[in-house]
Design a binder for these strands. Structure first.
Lengths: 194, 194
DNA sequence: GACCTCTCTTAACCCAGATCAATCAAATTT
DNA sequence: AAATTTGATTGATCTGGGTTAAGAGAGGTC
């Protein structure tokens, strides 16, 4: 089950077979069933997880008890509370599975050792972060400048697969709109199309 | 004028004097006067800039002609259109100076050479990106869960210096609210306080 | 000192999207 | 298969913040 991870890394940097093997040996497979947690608010985010199969989300719960989806992750994506992972602070986020999932996790000590043993991976993680950073920045731009309907349209375009797999109310939460509003927006799009 | 940059890097990684010198030699000082541009929409973002003195902003202009501030940068911060810089695509952003500023810029070819010559800097940029990514993710969480007033309060807390230096309408744009609304919010805060 | 230009404030009105409430459909559980 | 839970839809109503418009300081510039 390390095949996807190996391929994922080779897309960004070059590693020898033996480096790939040593890299893989730092990761531990973990099964996360639907509605089970990989991380709960108040814990320390021990792991960074690579999704081998399934779908997870990272979300916060505000004082009113409302959930807000920070991030989704399906196959070939990473998910974690990076802040908690890096600083050792308690997490303000929850990460749970929207489908039965299998992930490969690595803890901080292992990752640090791995980066020392295989310094080429520094580059991999820099590239990965560059992409992630660009993604979040685009999401910010989007919320600053576009209407709820436009944001939904962009979501469909950017993440067509996710849009199929994830419940509508979760997408609404990710976009920062009420589920009822998303329902109306979808109706409006459907009406306009025909 | 490389002192601030040297100190900035030493805060995250260890470099020898000679490595610091070689690092600094890759950067070029550049003066950007108030209202002048470091990058304009449609150009390719050639540089990553480290702010030595002054204050700049990165913003997009939407189809209605409205500006949306993506990022501010003052002394000891970095500013760029990372997407354009990395991919070579045309930028959708503008970067201009809100005050007369001095920055240290590095282009892509130089940065790549620098990273090859001083691989320890891979780590520096990874750490820098980790912080930036965490920051943007927190900003997203904030827009998803907090009211305009709460977002402004958090801004004041997180960036007390910026709040002093930057015009109110720019802060409003950064927070995704109309300048008139921010004015009302400030009045409300003042009224509540006394 | 008169004249711009920018930024901020205030007030009246408006609207996109939230909230509340009821219903329906489709999974899950028992 | 009946009962329960979960997610989606629809309608009615409300509201935070947008929009428009007008005026007021505060620098700059001639």
């Amino acid at each position: 089950m390390y095949e996807l991870l190996r391929a994922h890394i080779l897309k960004k940097i070059e590693l020898t077979e033996s480096e790939l093997d040593r890299m893989a040996s730092y990761f531990t497979p973990k099964r996360v069933l639907k509605k089970h947690f990989l991380l709960q608010e108040g814990e320390v985010g021990k792991y960074i997880a690579f999704v081998d199969r399934g779908c997870l989300r990272c979300y916060s719960v505000d004082p009113k008890g409302e959930e807000h989806v920070i991030q989704f992750a399906i196959e070939d994506w990473w998910i974690s509370d990076l802040q908690s992972f890096l600083t050792g602070e308690w997490s303000r986020y929850n990460i749970d599975a929207l489908e039965d999932s299998e992930v490969l996790v690595i803890d901080k000590i292992s990752r640090d050792s791995m980066l020392v043993e295989i310094p080429k991976l520094e580059r991999f993680f820099r590239l990965l972060l560059e992409r992630s950073y660009i993604g979040t920045q685009q999401r910010i731009e989007c919320t600053l400048s576009a209407s709820a309907e436009d944001r939904y349209q962009m979501f469909l375009k950017t993440f067509p697969t996710l849009a199929q797999r994830v419940p509508q109310n979760q997408i609404a939460s990710y976009l920062g709109i009420a589920p009822e509003s998303l329902s109306r927006i979808r109706k409006h799009i459907a009406d306009t199309a025909k």
